[in-house]
Design a protein around this nucleic acid. Sequence first.
DNA 1: TAGTTTGTACAGAATAAACTGTACGTAAAA
DNA 2: TTTTACGTACAGTTTATTCTGTACAAACTA
Lengths: 158, 158
Amino acid sequence: MGTTKKELIMQEIMIEFSKTVEMFGLTPLEARLFSFLYLSEKPLTLDDMSDALGKSKTSMSTNIRSLLELNLVTRVWKKGVRKDLYEANSQLFKAFMNFYLKNWIDQANQQKNSLEEIEKNIKRAKNNEELTALKEGLKHIIGFHRQLEETYKELNQD
Amino acid sequence: MGTTKKELIMQEIMIEFSKTVEMFGLTPLEARLFSFLYLSEKPLTLDDMSDALGKSKTSMSTNIRSLLELNLVTRVWKKGVRKDLYEANSQLFKAFMNFYLKNWIDQANQQKNSLEEIEKNIKRAKNNEELTALKEGLKHIIGFHRQLEETYKELNQD
DNA sequence: TAGTTTGTACAGAATAAACTGTACGTAAAA
DNA sequence: TTTTACGTACAGTTTATTCTGTACAAACTA
């Protein structure tokens, strides 16, 4: 019969859930894959996923890799099973917030550092009248980064 | 001389700042454009931007449009100037947070509603043993969305 | 009025991203 | 050992996105 009722419902859920997952910076396929794993009761193999999502095994391999790096998925060992098995990391909310915010803040921080470096260099140079407006803008931007950092830190500690 | 010292510093800042702006879901060019406007002292015309960023005027037009919709840029009127003038909305932090979080939450909310609809439909159907695990997963996912909503609301009210 | 200039719609070109199939290294099975 | 199966590197193809030039409507100028 191809698609059971269960599979049909599963697809409906996946469509919606994937959209939310995408908002956390995952590609559409990564999101669909994660949703699928999350709704599956057992750990799955690359072939399982390939069949279910209708995508190549290669694609599953690379996308699972991304999800592993993001710590959203775990590799599972099972006696007697030769293929690799994967399951979604199920502490959904915390896991997401953690990886997302961490990446976010890390990146923003890096940019803040670069900007402060630029600021330092401008200050060191002799006081050029022409640059005052630029300095002012830079100050605001750095302040913005600082605020970002604080806000998101706040959010993460609970 | 082509590139003055000021322009050089401006570019350095723009490179870093644009990265941060991109994290808020803007495309690279939108981000660069916004950074440029933010650092400019005067409102600018499409031709100004086109020259400065080395992109077509058409591109400036469409990208400015996006920024306007996101409320990150304002159109300015100046007596005697025929061309349209634009400047960055300068309450940087608040403006960003507002538009970003609003879109975010709106989207997540929409997905939550769809998921709850699905949940209702499952419950209405006769109790199928096979679906219990799926129901459980759905419940968690909806809970996740609820939590998202609350967390971000909290963040926005200060 | 006719003649310019400005902003944008649209179609096609250039660029980037996603996806697949083959091919191969490695590890388990026989 | 040989044979079989698994996962992934890599190159090429397909698909989506970004960007540009032309063309034109609307607004301004004289």
